[in-house]
Design a protein around this nucleic acid. Structure first.
Length: 501
RNA sequence: GCCCCCAUCGUCUAGUGGCCCAGGACGUCACCCUUUCAAGGUGAAGAUCACCGGUUCGAAUCCGGUUGGGGGUACCA
């Protein structure tokens, strides 16, 4: 058996899509598992919609996920490496032209001069007769003289591939035998536009043949295109590769995952603080599972276990809740240093957006990791969790700072007592969590307060919010000076908000 | 319409003829832990394996049909 050669061939007409990433991942995993080659090829023939920015997004995010390739473009707009370079279709146009001329010369394809109006009329007639829309083959019968006459008038024809009657079957890598009658292909299909641009079905096969692909692993939405591709491989005189069709990734309503109904750009997940480890792990489990009950697998473990035979046939809904849970699992597996490092860009973004007033260093962050690591669903949630640490001042809502069981005067008294205790007026204390807690509990007890109420009042006064990491760790992180200042500010706010109480 | 694919808890899935009146995970609920929020622990609810017929001593697993869902039907990719 020859070494497998597989590829992912995205169009740079949009950012890296979840579905494309999953297909890339399965191909990558298959190549790495079998010792084969994984190739990236850019299908940029849709010039109007392709951009280098999208090219960069695709390459960058594929790398971010931990996927690399043996042949293909190294960077957006850069050079390609590999024995079959170039790997960008716009740089391979001469090959499509040559292949098209070859098919034309062998009468496996013919020029079609039908106008859009004629084609439209055909379609309408078929629709009225309740027939499947198909090209009627009008131009397939033209003689050489008739063609010459058309050309003489300056009419440029599109090139149509002759679909031969019969059935095309293949042994799908994930579904077993699939058989389709070519009568259902819609007639002879266009492979080169009248303006000379080669079309998808044609270029994909010319390239897959030229690049010696052995296995075409792609989405289920390509099943009905496969007969066309097989016919083209045969016409080109090339061995037909194996095909494997992956189940679709679905929106919650079970339709094909789309930008309209779901978040589909990998870059968006990245921007929200999902780890590449999470995405790699999660995507691998969409339509595949290793069989056991473990669900958390690293890149290397996945490479070691991946098996095309265990790929499912049914579509899989993209479950964001599950993604978030998995991200939490991966975040908790990071070392404090690593987590702190990865958090920095998100803090910078919060700073740029004005949500925090200064950005801590990684060294500032590391000691905080024990109290935030298990509370972070995504890296992007850092500001929401402990942004109060880097804000110059917090807004305290008088209605929120008063605990449910307390009234305004009690809250003022409680905050004052806490302030004095921390300030050391009544009893000097070291500013460490273990040293802070006992005197505060004693304070609550001597006043007949529930410790939880006192703590909540302090929490809101100092952080502006009701949900935070453990109170005393938060106070220590803030520092004595700022804690005192915020307590004073909160007390003052309360004193001047009689009606709110 | 036509062609094709698919079908186990709400979701991701285990299961390849007996170990399954179906196991795990997410989510949900309850309890424990607890200064809040998480995390963690324990437990619960949740699937007559879409339905109907067959094959078999025995079917979620094999076969046929039905229903449902999805995909495709371009001079898009």
């Amino acid at each position: 058996m020859t070494t497998p050669r597989v590829r992912i061939a995205p169009s740079p007409t949009g950012p890296l899509h979840i579905g494309t990433a999953r297909t890339a991942l399965f191909n990558y995993l298959y190549a790495r598992r079998t010792g084969g080659a994984f190739i990236l090829r850019l299908e940029d023939t849709d010039v109007a919609r392709s951009t280098v920015a999208f090219e960069a997004d695709i390459i960058d995010n594929l790398h971010w996920l931990g996927i690399d390739w043996d042949e293909g473009p190294d960077s957006a707009g850069g050079t390609d490496h590999g024995p079959f370079a170039p790997y960008r279709q716009m740089q391979r146009l001469d090959r499509y032209t040559a292949a098209a001329e070859d098919l034309l010369a062998r009468d496996l394809a013919y020029p079609c001069y039908c106008t859009p109006e004629e084609l439209d009329a055909d379609r309408k007639a078929q629709e009225a007769a309740h027939e499947a829309p198909r090209y009627v083959g009008r131009c397939g019968l033209l003689t050489a003289d008739e063609r010459a006459a058309r050309e003489a008038t300056g009419t440029k024809g599109a090139l149509r591939f002759r679909v031969k009657p019969g059935k095309v079957a293949w042994d799908d890598l994930v579904r077993g035998t699939v058989e389709i009658d070519t009568a259902n292909l819609g007639g002879d299909f266009v492979i080169v536009r009248s303006n000379g641009d080669p079309l998808y079905h044609f270029v994909v096969v010319v390239d897959d043949a030229a690049m010696d692909m052995t296995d075409i692993i792609r989405g289920e939405d390509h099943i009905s295109n496969t007969p066309k591709h097989i016919l083209l491989f045969e016409a080109l005189g090339h061995a037909v590769p194996r095909f494997g069709h992956l189940p679709l990734i679905l929106n919650p309503d079970r339709t094909k995952m789309s930008k309209r109904k779901s978040q589909t750009a990998i870059s968006d997940y990245r921007a929200q603080g999902y780890l590449p480890e999470t995405m790699f792990n999660f995507l691998a489990f969409l339509g595949w599972s290793p069989g056991g009950e473990d669900e958390i697998f690293s890149h290397d473990e996945l490479v070691a276990r991946f098996d095309l035979e265990r790929v499912h046939k049914g579509g899989a809904v993209f479950d964001k809740d599950r993604l978030e849970w998995l991200n939490g699992q991966w975040i908790r597996r990071l070392t404090p240093e690593d987590l702190a490092e990865r958090l920095l860009p998100f803090l910078e973004a919060d700073h740029a957006a004005g949500r925090i007033d200064r950005v801590p260093t990684a060294d500032d962050l590391v000691p905080l990791m024990p109290i935030i690591q298990e509370r972070l669903p995504t890296l992007g949630a850092i500001g929401e969790l402990v942004g109060f640490l880097w804000q110059d001042e917090v807004v305290v809502d008088p209605a929120v700072v008063v605990p449910k069981r307390w009234d305004r005067p009690t809250t003022i008294a409680g905050l004052r007592a806490a302030r004095d205790t921390i300030a050391g007026d009544t009893a000097p204390i070291d500013f460490e969590a273990e040293e802070l807690e006992p005197p505060m509990r004693a304070l609550a007890e001597s006043n007949g307060w529930k410790a939880g109420d006192l703590f909540m009042a302090i929490r809101v006064a100092v952080t502006g919010r009701t949900a935070t990491p453990p109170l005393f760790d938060s106070l220590v992180a803030l520092g004595r000076g700022r804690v005192l200042a915020r307590l004073d500010a909160a007390i003052s706010t309360l004193e001047h908000s009689e009606d709110a109480a």
